[in-house]
Design a binder for these strands. Structure first.
Length: 843
DNA sequence: GTCTCCCGCCAGACT
DNA sequence: AGTCTGGCGGGAGAC
């Protein structure tokens, strides 16, 4: 796997030629692809290029064609020459480290030779693996490079040897003489927001992506004040969540749909649609007889105190602004009307004098929303000419499941409280049925957010990829025979053993369970579901493999091996291990103190975990991340959730198990020789495991040639003796780990949930966030196999200190907070770890 | 001239 | 007291 010579977009495919034209075009050409694939790739490149240079036409793309190692290497070199600030960003993404030092940020970027950058450093490997595991992250990484700060671009020019790799931004800089200050547009909030968004995946696989405002502001080269503007708007849509001072967590667009639905409902409750109608008729609202937010807020004495400064929060304003769109028939809102409505709501005596200010703020909000692709600027005609307005272009149908809505609406706090989507009293006028469940917490520095996302962890795939691909999720392991799903919990179509398989509809089975009762299964194995056969992976199919406990064991071993092999490298893992040890100790002490009920419960769970390996672990990166502030507070919430869930009064907590074992198979996107997915638990000799600790590795078919296609470990392997290779192309194999996995069963095989092909971000939200839409007629409930035992409880530093003293609260994608922290955490073998899996119902 | 919205002051909130 | 947040409006670039 020649990763460093791979296209950052179609990463796994080796030998991609990457080329940046001076005009800003980006060309990727797959050297060994047919024309159709190549064309497709060009389209991808075009979209990427457009991202960089919207003005360029496709004709600007130069088809380089064929292999050109020299240029390819140049491109690699180009990537390596990304100056410090970008590296810093990447590093932060990877490790969630502290902000780069001023020396880094302002110093002259060091040439790669000086830096001695080795593409095969553990960091590089990690990035590579993360990139492979997450197309979305890969995209973001790419965008990060593209949106690097201007200073870096200047610096980049310094190190550019041949000058062939230039982006438009740089060109503009050059055209302006280089010394001239950036234009107003270049400093616009919208562009800044795009840069910001480019740092993070739209659909992260976990909620462990932390955002440090300091880091972001330094990375993007702007003052923190500007970041506030962005995150406030993003927070209003639950794209980010504030977890502590200066710390946010990235949720991405996973909750966007449900958030919008919630806002729409709130907007209707606020009768904003009436406001809009009246405003539309008379240019402004006249005596709309509705409750104003402040009226509701004042009814709540606890909220009244907060209705001063927070009243004017950009956050609240943003939500209200979005509401206006969502309740509007035309979905078009003029700033004029919006400002007036918002001013009247504020009931500020001097509000009318604030009109200008409101409009300013609305511009700020609109810029962010535009960057999010939710609105676009239009003009509406009026008697006196045309008026600037914004039209909603975001998802129109975001109706979500009850669970989904609740996930947004009821954001559980560590103490069991719930925080509603809107923190402000402005929203407290909603019917009590809803409002009563909400608490307003506007304390900026309090641990405010915890998303008990009831959605299964979203499949992490880029929109780009999914737009043309089917998504299939395979669940591995952890199913218990006869296990019943908790009432009210998420359910999946299951085999008798609880396995299930989720596939895209309209496609021939993307995955066929290797299942004892399944038609493709060989002799019964004591550990069913060892392998998945993907007979008809459509183009760019994405397969997500979810590791079960057994997989985690394999991962554990792998991690141990990796760490051992890394020798001295205490590094992060080592440090985390220490932290973990301390946590373990505290946890043990805590176990002895906790209530009898909890203790008993834990005992039961522990007992269960001892009984079956399928219950021994959970690999929620967040939970498992030793660096996570998952102290005591984090322990109890999952326990509580589990308890609730098991008695059927609580939906399964989210993110208990992250898709720690997942890989995708962009079949037609350039994986001709890389169609094998091998769990890290399956580590046949000769396979090189990069220093990264992702649980799975991509293995080319050629690499696997010495190995039997029926690559399952242990007895299972022996038992599965039908010749897969005779049945299908090796390009369709998913290989289980050395330890048994449970592979979900397909509907055709008694339990397949079918999801429609995804073609839009919204569909991603609806379907990508889970194997199936929560209310899919085919499958009313998402699979239960991966249970999120851990409530995503952002913690304040204080809590974190109490819980283990780790410095890192959240891990950025690259920080191993997702997949790569899992191995470390899995060593815990602690009560918590067991608990997280132990909630699997066994009755 | 109007539209946009960057910029940074400064005060409330929080640590 | 120091730091974080973010409201606010002047004023200038863009149109």
């Amino acid at each position: 796997m020649s990763a460093t010579h791979s296209c950052p977009i179609c990463f796994p495919e080796p030998r991609k030629l990457i080329r940046w034209n001076r005009s800003g075009s980006v060309v990727y050409t797959c050297s060994n692809k047919d024309s159709e694939t190549r064309k497709k790739m060009e389209v991808e490149c075009l979209s990427l290029r457009d991202l960089i240079s919207p003005k360029k036409s496709k004709a600007d793309i130069e088809d380089v064609g064929g292999r050109n190692d020299q240029k390819e290497n140049r491109c690699v070199e180009r990537r390596r020459t990304t100056p410090h600030k970008m590296d810093t960003t990447a590093t932060m993404l990877l490790y969630g480290s502290k902000a780069p030092t001023p020396e880094h940020l302002h110093g002259t970027p060091v040439k790669p030779s000086e830096r001695g950058a080795d593409p095969w450093t553990p960091t590089a490997n990690l990035r590579m693996l993360i990139s492979a595991a997450s197309p979305d992250i890969r995209d973001r990484e790419m965008k990060k490079v593209l949106f690097r700060p201007i200073e870096n671009e200047r610096a980049l020019e310094d190190v550019e040897v041949d000058g062939t790799c230039q982006f438009d931004v740089v060109d503009e800089e050059e055209e302006e003489g280089g010394e001239t200050k950036p234009s107003r547009k270049q400093k616009s909030l919208g562009l800044l927001c795009q840069k910001f968004l480019a740092l993070y995946p739209d659909y992260p696989t976990s909620d462990t992506i932390s955002i440090s405002l300091d880091e972001v502001s330094t990375s993007l080269g702007v003052e923190r004040r500007r970041i506030y503007d962005i995150v406030n708007v993003l927070e209003s849509l639950m794209i980010v969540g504030r977890v502590a001072k200066n710390q946010y967590v990235w949720y991405g667009r996973r909750h966007l749909g449900s958030t919008l639905a919630e806002l729409q409902g709130m907007g209707r409750q606020q009768r904003y649609h009436l406001h809009m109608e009246q405003a539309g008729e008379g240019g402004h609202r006249e005596g709309a007889t509705t409750h104003t937010p402040e009226e509701g807020g004042e009814a709540d004495s606890s909220c009244a105190a907060a209705s001063t400064r927070k009243d004017k929060s950009l956050r609240i304003m943003s939500q209200k602004f979005v509401m206006l769109f969502l309740v509007s028939r035309t979905q078009t809102v003029t700033l004029d009307v919006a400002a007036k409505i918002l001013i009247e709501e504020s009931q500020d005596p001097a509000s009318h004098s604030k009109y200008k200010t409101k409009v300013r703020r609305l511009y700020d909000i609109a810029n962010v929303l535009t960057s999010l692709g939710l609105i676009k600027k239009v003009h509406v005609r009026e008697e006196r000419g045309r008026k600037p307005a914004f039209k909603w272009i975001g998802p129109a149908d975001f109706h979500t499941s009850h669970e989904d809505s609740e996930a947004v609406e009821a954001i559980a706090l560590p103490g069991g409280r719930k925080q509603k989507l809107a923190r402000h009293a402005s929203f407290s006028v909603v019917p009590t049925s809803v409002a009563s469940q909400r608490l307003v917490n506007s304390a900026p520095s309090s641990p405010r957010r915890e998303v008990t996302g009831l959605l299964p962890q979203p499949v992490d795939y880029s929109r780009k990829c999914v737009s043309s691909s089917a998504v299939c999720r395979l669940r591995f392991g952890t199913t218990v025979t006869g296990a019943s799903r908790p009432s009210g919990g998420l359910r999946s179509p299951t085999h008798s053993d609880g396995s299930s398989l989720l596939c895209s509809p309209g496609l021939s089975p993307l995955a066929v369970p290797i299942h004892p009762e399944g038609p493709y299964v060989g002799p019964l194995s004591p550990h069913p579901h060892h392998m998945a056969y993907l007979p008809s992976l459509s183009q760019a199919s994405v397969v997500m493999l979810y590791g079960g406990p057994a997989a985690q064991e394999g991962l554990h071993r792998l991690t141990t091996e990796v760490q051992r092999s890394s020798g001295s490298g205490e590094g992060i893992l080592g440090k985390r291990k220490r932290d973990e040890g301390a946590e373990e100790e505290k946890r043990a002490k805590k176990d002895t103190r906790e209530s009898p009920e909890l203790s008993e419960e834990r005992k039961v769970v522990d007992g269960r975990s001892v009984e079956g390996n399928s219950l021994q672990m959970t690999t929620s990166p967040r939970t498992s991340s030793p660096g996570h502030p998952g102290g005591q507070a984090r322990e109890e919430a999952p326990l509580r959730d589990i308890r609730d869930w098991e008695v059927g009064r609580h939906s399964p907590p989210n993110n208990q198990v992250q898709p720690s074992h997942y890989l995708y198979v962009p079949n037609s996107a350039g994986l001709n020789s890389l169609n094998f997915l091998l769990s890290a638990g399956q580590t046949p000799d000769g396979l090189t495991l990069p220093a990264g600790t992702l649980p799975c590795v991509l293995v080319s078919s050629s690499t696997l040639s010495p190995y039997p296609l029926m690559a399952n470990g242990g007895d299972a392997h022996a038992n599965l003796n039908f010749n897969m290779s005779a049945m299908m192309s090796p390009a369709c194999f998913v290989m289980g780990a050395a330890v048994p996995y449970a592979v979900a069963g397909a509907p055709e095989f008694s339990g397949l949930a079918v999801a429609p092909a995804l073609s839009s971000p919204e569909q991603h939200r609806l379907f990508g966030s889970g194997p199936i839409p929560p209310h899919s007629p085919l499958e009313p409930r998402p699979p239960l196999t991966f249970i999120q035992a851990e409530t995503q409880t952002p913690q304040t530093p204080k809590e974190a200190a109490a819980g283990g003293g780790s410095k890192a609260f959240f891990q950025t994608p690259g920080t191993l907070g997702t997949a790569t922290t899992t191995p470390v955490a899995r060593r815990r073998g602690s009560a918590q770890r067991r608990l997280e899996i132990g909630h699997l119902p066994t009755n």
